[in-house]
Amino acid sequence: MSEAAKKPMITDVFVAGARKGWNIAVSSTIPNVMMAFVIIKGLVITGALGMIGQVFAPVMALVGLPGEAAAVLMGAMMSMGGAVGVAVGLFDSGALTGDHLAILAPAIYLMGSIVQYAGRILGVVGTEAGKIPVMFGICILNAFLAMFIMNILV
């Protein structure tokens, strides 16, 4: 490998990275966030969001969050980007504050996209079926521990 000849300019590297970011934004971020906003709209006009808020209020209160935050975590299991969209939608409507978002941010990823990743990680490595529910459980536990920690820190 002739390194000297192949060394790219730092500006080229930056632009290549920005292009990757554009592709992620267009193929993942925008569609996921849009879907999340449609779901929120549905939850709001049917009154389901209020119900989620009431049902989950006692559990979420343990980590300093209102019950509506449960909607973010449910979305997270399907899609991390979607959950961020839900979180922002709830922030806009006043159901969540900036502090709540800080508590939720690590948790969204710790239990994020696990439905999808069950195939893409556990399936590829060949994890035994019996251990899969345990791994789901640990992800959710991880998320709750992270919210507990963030609640103390913010």
Partner: peptide, 18 residues
């Protein structure tokens, strides 16, 4: 809203690449 996220994603990915 998603559109407002695009520059942040692009900038973050560009910095990680660098």
């Amino acid at each position: 809203f998603a559109f407002t996220l695009v520059p942040t994603v692009m900038f973050a990915m560009a910095m990680i690449e660098v």
